[in-house]
């Protein structure tokens, strides 16, 4: 079983992750062509003002002094204030506002991927080389061939414009003020907590299309992984023995195969969560949902480095935490492993 010492060790890993991301951002900041002082002051600023900005940011200190300060600030989650995107707002504040948006999208997308991908993979494996198997595999291949920024617009056109059953973009109807009932920042949760049924329905309706678009991607990988993992388990001896003893094929598979086949799939779900976050960047853009994905894109475009750093670090933390969760699930499924 999992020990608290193991969890603590994994959480301590966040320290090298933090220093690592901060070092990478620092080097990108100093290697990329733009002059940060000029970016902040604006292209048309007077030379004097640019000098002043340089002074206040300590850009004239030797680079190792700047590095030390940068890492020390990052270690305290002090990323400073946004240069451009939201002037005079701390990066932390911006992130707290935007993170739940992406988180909500990723959670529902992942759920769709898992709950469609696993059954499809099992079906494909149990009926290996049947029409169902081929269709599932071709479907998965088509799923990864269609880019999110095309399937998204098509779904919007079909369901929002032609059929008019789902909303086009955003997280909730503009008629409602979600900020007033904000608790977790996840609109589908907040509206339930507040007991606003109409608002909840609106939030769910807004979530359906983006979550499906993002979910199809992880579904493709999960079903492929589940299929090959399941096939491997089916081929193993004890399943054959169980079958020889006269148990029906379906029962055998469900009883013995599933649990063992799940183990490698669970770990893959953790690893592909990173890809899901990448997909979130595109999905947020298509559906005009302002989460940390679009924030990152904007920040890179305009050179708002404090925001870039905060966003990248948030992504890295999310990834690490999800994989910690995966490890805990893993050890529950496979008690042979001692942590």
């Amino acid at each position: 079983m999992i020990s608290s010492r193991f969890v603590l060790k994994r959480l301590l890993l966040l320290v090298p992750v933090l220093v690592g991301v901060a070092s990478l951002v620092f080097s990108i900041l100093h290697l990329s062509p733009g002059d940060p002082a000029l970016t902040i002051a604006g292209e048309r600023a007077s030379e004097e003002f640019v000098k002043q900005v340089e002074e206040s940011l300590g850009l004239n200190d030797p680079i190792w002094v700047q590095y030390g300060r940068f890492i020390a600030d990052a270690a305290q989650f002090q990323f400073g204030e946004s240069f451009i995107i939201q002037r005079n707002t701390t990066v932390r504040e911006v992130l707290v506002n935007k993170l739940p948006v992406t988180l909500e999208l990723a959670i529902y997308g992942q759920l769709i991927g898992v709950f469609l991908g696993i059954p499809l993979g099992i079906l494909s494996a149990v009926k290996q080389d049947s029409i169902t198997d081929h269709l599932t595999r071709i479907g998965a291949l088509a799923g990864i061939s269609v880019p999110i920024f095309w399937s998204g617009p098509l779904l919007i056109l079909l369901f929002a414009q032609v059929l008019g059953v789902l909303p086009t973009s955003g997280r909730i109807s503009v008629l409602y003020n979600v900020e007033a009932i904000r608790v977790t920042g996840l609109v589908t949760v907040d509206t339930l907590i507040a007991g606003e049924w109409d608002m909840f329905v609106s939030a769910v309706r807004h979530m359906i299309l983006p979550a499906s678009v993002i979910g199809v991607y992880s579904m493709a990988l999960i079903s492929r992984m589940m299929r090959s993992s399941m096939l491997e388990v089916i081929r193993q001896d004890y399943i054959r023995t169980a079958r020889a003893k006269g148990q029906g094929a379906k029962i055998t598979v469900l009883k013995h195969g599933f649990r063992n086949a799940m183990i490698p799939v669970i770990t893959v779900i953790g690893i592909q969560f990173g890809g899901l976050l990448g997909g979130a960047v595109l999905t947020e853009t298509v559906f005009a949902i302002g989460g940390i994905g679009t924030l990152l894109v904007e920040a890179i475009k305009v050179g708002d480095y404090p925001i870039v750093q905060g966003t990248v670090l948030t992504f890295a933390f999310l990834f690490t935490l999800v994989n910690l969760g995966v490890d805990i699930t893993y050890s529950i499924l496979d008690p042979r492993i001692e942590q």
């Binding site: 090298p16 992750v17 220093v19 690592g20 991301v21 901060a22 070092s23 990478l24 951002v25 620092f26 080097s27 990108i28 290697l31 890295a316």
Partner: peptide, 8 residues
Amino acid sequence: LLFGFGLL
């Protein structure tokens, strides 16, 4: 850059 990459 290398240091940060290695840590990650």
